[in-house]
Design a binder for these strands. Structure first.
Length: 573
RNA sequence: CGGGGUGUAGCGCAGCUUGGCAGCGCGCUUCGUUCGGGACGAAGAGGCCGCCGGUUCAAAUCCGGCCACCCCGACCA
């Protein structure tokens, strides 16, 4: 490719409103342009990176036995009704009707459609299967942001495994986990695996691959000692045990909570400061609407709720905090004096940290009144015990008790053990060795291609621009013709460019009639790993200058050896 | 959806409070001088001032409505 033919130029100034570094640089360097919120055009340089990322992923998928497919993005809504996900996905799915009025959706993911193909599987002998594709996904995100990191239309490599049983799924899942580690290593993304919630996918286990970055939208709790890592929506910690003995003694003989008038008290802190009732001796009562049902959520006074944990614990599609009037109507008091003692009309979900606690205080469901001496298991009709609290940085690792660190990160991949939800709903079965009917168990595995590009850009840039790793760079080498008017230099640059292409080195040539400084600046901005400067001055000595973008190292090499030297540099890894 | 902000030339912006010829920098075109780290001079081209309506002799500017985009909070690759 010749720079003189490149249609979209680089920008001299930073574009407005580009928050993340990757967004700013990909715009400036001419890799992407925005059409509307969450929808980007990929330009020729962007397409080259995307193709390389896809090639690496494809190689690793094929290596573990993956077979490539391409399924439609536009799908009948009916299939999604069969699995119940039309409702679960809700507003996130784009919906449309065709001219006959048939309801269609744009795929947010392809479990249903791949499972439809799996209907043709007939025998256990055909399992396991790994099927994958690169396909555009559409998600009506409430708030697209940060360039390619969060968009509404993007390419996803999604793969699906079908196995006879759980043991088989474990093997398929593990194969994918290893493949993902190889993929991110080859892409130059410093990703690490973390435990995660399954969310709307359902199923049992899931692992996210996280790339540490200030532009990331997730927080991960990670143990620097034993390697434990989990998304905050899933992470736990080992809490120091709390001694309730003193309070127990005080309340010896009591058979129930005692009333405490607390005029004006509205917060956990008010109660702690004004009445000497420490936050970790209080029960925090939150009221949430869980799939439309008013639910009491109990946590220790000093613990925040992790919303996703509540969703996971209740199997809800959606939760939201209750409005004050809803709370008033249900419990007879406003936030600040709420409690679950004696409540039987509403489901109660309590965090495990409250289990066995005694001598606790909580609201009395009368404004300005609290209860003390509450024995959680004696006085409260807890329906569900679950891990609900969000861990705090510095709490002890659940495995080894080392203080947990928080890391901000971009989620670049996610793998799920799905179970039989989709195969059951769609009626996928195979015949087993004893002629029994087997419902295959599925796994699903995703990587966002453009997001991966953004993650690479986030982790590979400097003040001058992008610094792509060789395997994903838009080109391996750019030849800079510095002396445009020197015919000998022009001929030498053209010849070198042709020789590089002959040697199957992916090269660009910057033959524009602009000053050398512009070419240097653009070579650096676009981040091509090696540049070869061809100019009259060095050519008089029979040499060209080879510069490594990432480090700035320069080397003068004889023209005749330039191709060989570059091949050597490119082969380094 | 809630809160905050912005829409003026390809890009970045000023002008708006106080209504009166639509501007600046970069980029672009032509000519000349330059030419190994984003050159200089001269002459040019380029506008639905987001859209619709209102007020006014007169609206980028004031008023109303709508739309789009960005940022901050609830979702995911």
């Amino acid at each position: 490719m010749r720079w003189s033919q490149l249609h979209i130029p680089t920008l001299r100034e930073d574009p407005a409103d580009a928050d993340a570094a990757s967004h700013r640089l990909l715009l400036r360097a001419g890799f992407i342009r925005q059409l509307m919120a969450g929808h980007y055009s990929l330009l020729p340089l962007g397409i080259r990176v995307r193709a390389r990322v896809m090639t690496i992923i494809r190689e690793e998928m094929n290596r573990i036995g993956g077979q490539e497919f391409l399924l439609p993005s536009m799908q009948p809504a009916q299939i999604w009704e069969k699995t119940g996900r039309l409702a679960v996905m809700g507003e996130e799915m784009f919906r449309l009707r065709d001219r006959r009025g048939a309801e269609m959706v744009l795929g947010v993911t392809h479990e249903e459609i791949f499972a439809t193909l799996a209907l043709e599987l007939a025998s256990y002998r055909e399992l396991p299967q790994f099927w994958y594709q690169f396909q555009t996904k559409f998600r009506d995100e409430p708030r697209p942001k940060s360039g390619l990191i969060r968009v509404r239309e993007f390419t996803m490599k999604d793969s699906y495994s079908f196995d006879i049983d759980e043991a088989g799924l474990d093997v398929s899942f593990e194969a994918h986990r290893k493949a993902y580690e190889r993929i991110f290593a080859r892409l130059g993304i410093p990703a690490f695996a973390v435990q995660a919630s399954n969310g709307t996918m359902g199923g049992t286990d899931s692992i996210e691959f996280m790339c540490p970055s200030g532009a990331g939208e997730d927080l991960v709790a990670r143990c620097p000692s034993c390697g434990y890592a989990a998304n905050l929506e899933k992470a736990t910690s080992a809490l120091a045990p709390i001694q309730d003995a003193a309070e127990q003694a005080e309340q010896a003989g009591q058979t129930g909570p005692a009333r405490l008038d607390t005029p004006g008290v509205r917060t956990i802190e008010d109660l702690a400061v004004g009445y000497g009732l420490a936050a970790d001796r209080q029960i925090k009562t939150l009221v949430q609407i869980v799939d439309g049902e008013l639910t009491l959520v109990l946590l220790r006074g000093d613990h925040p709720l992790a919303d996703q944990k509540l969703i996971d614990a209740t199997g809800a599609a959606a939760i939201r905090p209750a409005q004050p009037q809803e709370i008033q109507a249900a419990l007879g008091a406003l936030p600040g004096s709420l409690g679950a003692v004696g409540v039987t009309d509403y489901p109660i979900v309590a965090d495990l940290a409250l289990r066995g606690r005694r001598g606790m205080s909580t609201g009395a469901n009368t404004d300005d009144v609290h209860l003390t001496g509450v024995d959680v298991e004696r006085d409260i009709a807890v329906g569900t015990w679950a891990d609900l609290r969000e861990v705090t940085e510095g709490e002890p690792c659940p495995r080894c008790a080392t203080a947990l660190e928080f890391v901000q990160a971009i989620e670049v991949g996610h793998i799920f053990k799905l179970g039989r939800k989709f195969t059951t709903a769609l009626g996928v079965t195979v015949t087993g060795p004893d002629r029994e009917t087997i419902t295959p168990i599925m796994g699903s595995y995703g990587i966002g291609i453009e997001r991966a590009m953004a993650a690479i850009a986030e982790t590979h840039h400097d003040d001058a621009g992008l610094t792509w790793p060789v395997p994903v760079a838009p080109a391996e080498v750019t030849v800079l013709l510095l002396s445009v008017r020197d015919e000998a230099a022009r001929a030498a640059a053209d010849e070198l460019y042709a020789s590089l292409l002959d040697a199957r080195v992916d090269a660009l040539i910057d033959d524009r009639d602009v000053r050398p400084g512009v070419k240097y600046a653009d070579a650096e901005l676009t981040g091509i790993p090696f540049r070869v400067s061809v100019g009259s001055r060095d050519l008089a000595d029979g040499v060209v200058e080879v510069t490594r973008r990432a480090t700035g190292e320069k080397e003068r090499v004889p023209v005749a050896q330039a191709v060989t030297v570059l091949q050597g540099l490119l082969a380094e890894r």
